[in-house]
Write a protein that binds this DNA or RNA. Structure first.
Lengths: 223, 223
DNA sequence: TCAAAAGTGTTCCGAATACACCCATGA
DNA sequence: TCATGGGTGTATTCGGAACACTTTTGA
């Protein structure tokens, strides 16, 4: 019985929800896209293992990490009996410098709307779908969406993120009204100028402290 | 690296939420209360392992089973590096016949409101608390409460179950009104007579079929 | 006829929804 | 001055919360 970890890492790049995949350099499944992951060592928790493997295999540092599910189908790995503890992580769209290592011939961000047409290694498609379900649920009742955005963002960007992930049409005005009533955002004293059209937008920052205090007093984040 | 499973089994007996614990017959933690569980075999999934161990160690058959979380602290088991996949299960309060086996010197139902004063083996207290959190959340948006009740139950019993688990005062009238509007219950053509006081109560049965149809059409169970 | 539990209805309030116009900016 | 995207307000509707009386039953 061997134990591995796998990580479904999401980011939000160019208004699209992306997932981090590596191209496997070795068999089994050589050449196929796969999640980052690997064996758990004797002296580390599964969470530590995920962070270590991500660092080793891709060089990324997460803003959020959560255990997803443990997959234990007997036939899930051709190398033998391998149980995997899957995690999902979120990362702001900073310029991610990938450090290729021997296990991966390529590393990249793939649009989640496209991955269904790819041929993923092992049961990794199943794991990604599980992660997507969890993300879509969780983003509605925990303020984790901010971990997919840069530190400073506009209301429209926040709104577009939610539209993209929940893939439905949310009324922009109602969404912003609701979010402002939550009172979890700090205005920052400058505005953005992405694109050179139209009015400049106010930038905001998530106020983690405020959220924790509000939560302790019974506030429930709920979109 | 060894892999085990542990099961937090709940039932609802005498208007109290109970958890199934065994008294360990051997070291480590001999004599302490613990969850049912054990090693995962090479040719079975973790879910199959839980069901097998529950059958072996206690003889109970679950009405509901769900994976909870995988616990992997390096020091969580004195026997060495053991990662455990925890599950929680629900079972209706039928007369459960326990089959004692060599691993357990005793098996019993313990009120969840009392277990905090007991000395549980390993990190099993942590696991039970995790399961309680999950149950309290999930019962509010999936109709799993019925798996803690007998096939036929009264509205008042259903209401009391929710009050007990969510330990807060829910308005009885609003609760019943809401549940009736869901239209997920079948009236059965007889009434109960528990106790010999007061008006007899209509008995109901959960209509799983109706729920699945409604769910497919977009219905969301939500207390 | 009384005590105990079951069963039911109405009002009120707040949140969600639907919906449209004005503002700031740079070309 | 115009096109583009940012920012705000109101009316309506629906569901949740608060709340009290009548009915059935057995002793």
């Amino acid at each position: 019985m061997k134990l591995t970890v796998d990580a479904v890492v999401f980011s939000y790049i160019e208004n699209q929800l992306k997932v981090l995949l590596i191209k496997r350099a070795f068999d089994p499944c050589k050449g196929q896209l796969a999640l980052a992951g690997g064996y758990v060592q004797e002296d580390e928790t599964t969470e530590q293992a995920v962070l270590r493997k991500l660092k080793d295999e891709t060089g990324v540092n997460l803003d959020y990490l959560e255990q997803l599910y443990t997959f234990s189908d007997v036939e899930r790995d051709p190398r033998g009996r391998i149980v995997t503890v899957a995690y999902y992580g979120l990362i702001a769209p900073i310029k991610t410098e990938f450090t290729l290592n021997k296990h991966a011939s390529d590393i990249g961000w793939y649009d989640v709307n496209d991955i269904f047409s790819y041929d993923l290694a092992f049961d990794h498609m199943k794991i990604i779908n599980y992660a997507l379900d969890r993300l879509r649920n969780k983003i509605q009742y925990e303020p984790i969406g901010f971990d997919l955005l840069p530190q400073y963002f506009t209301m429209t960007e926040l709104w577009m993120l939610y539209c993209e992930i929940l893939n439905n049409e949310i009324d922009r005005r109602n969404f912003i009204k609701k979010f402002k009533k939550f009172d979890l955002l700090k205005q920052v004293p400058f505005k953005n100028s992405t694109g050179n059209k139209g009015r400049k937008a106010q930038l905001y920052e998530f106020d983690e402290e405020k959220y924790l205090v509000a939560k302790r007093e019974g506030f429930n984040f709920d979109i």
